[in-house]
């Protein structure tokens, strides 16, 4: 994939959508919603989709613990080998897939991702889940839903709905990998056309 920044075109400024305190409030709100919709988090596990979903799942678990005292199980679900666009995107380094203690069979699994866009990542996650066990139900939590769905998929928990143009990119930034917390919108001129909603 070509990741060069085009040299021509008007450089429109990167737009800040959420700052650190706002992102933190969004995560808190989702944690509350999860507790409400899952009967206090019983029989529920969080599975983060790398890279940022992994850290979001951990943050949500820690907020849930703070609000209710419940130590909710978390894990990591790497979906790279299930993607249907590998030939266009190129080989990627894999991240470990880690199941929560007690596995996922008969659990309510909540997939955690940063941005929901075409829905392809989530579709790949369904396939990966099916090879790893048999959950009782699967839900989806995302920080940003930016529209442009290509699959009949919707999120159960959404931090912010953000209408975007296809060529724009939404980045959720987390201190664990990006040094800062926040959400930004990168204009089309300074990035290539994204093939998917996953943050770059």
């Amino acid at each position: 994939m070509d990741t060069r920044v085009p040299e021509t075109g008007v450089q429109r400024p990167v737009r800040k959508i959420l700052d650190a305190p706002a992102l933190s409030r969004v995560i808190d709100r989702i944690a509350h919603q999860i507790l409400e919709k899952t009967d206090g988090g019983t029989n529920t596990v969080l599975l983060g989709i790398p890279t940022r979903g992994t850290f979001l799942a951990r943050r949500l678990a820690s907020r849930i613990k703070a609000f209710s005292g419940l130590a909710i199980g978390t894990g990591v679900l790497d979906i790279t080998l299930y993607r249907d666009d590998l030939r266009m995107r190129g080989a990627r380094a894999l991240e470990p897939t880690e199941m929560p203690d007690g596995g996922i069979d008969n659990k309510r699994v909540i997939l955690i991702d940063d941005v929901l866009f075409s829905g392809r990542s989530v579709r790949a996650a369904f396939d990966a889940l099916a090879d790893l066990g048999r959950p009782r139900a699967v839900q989806l939590a995302v920080i940003v839903d930016r529209g442009h769905r290509e699959f009949p998929i919707r999120a159960d928990y959404v931090g912010k709905n953000l209408p975007t143009a296809r060529a724009e990119t939404v980045k959720v930034q987390l201190a664990e990998v990006d040094d800062v917390d926040g959400v930004i919108l990168v204009p089309a001129e300074s990035t290539p056309t994204p093939l998917d909603g996953e943050s770059v």
Partner: peptide, 15 residues
């Protein structure tokens, strides 16, 4: 096999 068959013909993968 995974790494060779999912990189494009110029030998470039991403990540």
């Amino acid at each position: 096999l995974y790494l060779l068959l999912t990189q494009d013909s110029t030998g470039q993968g991403t990540a």
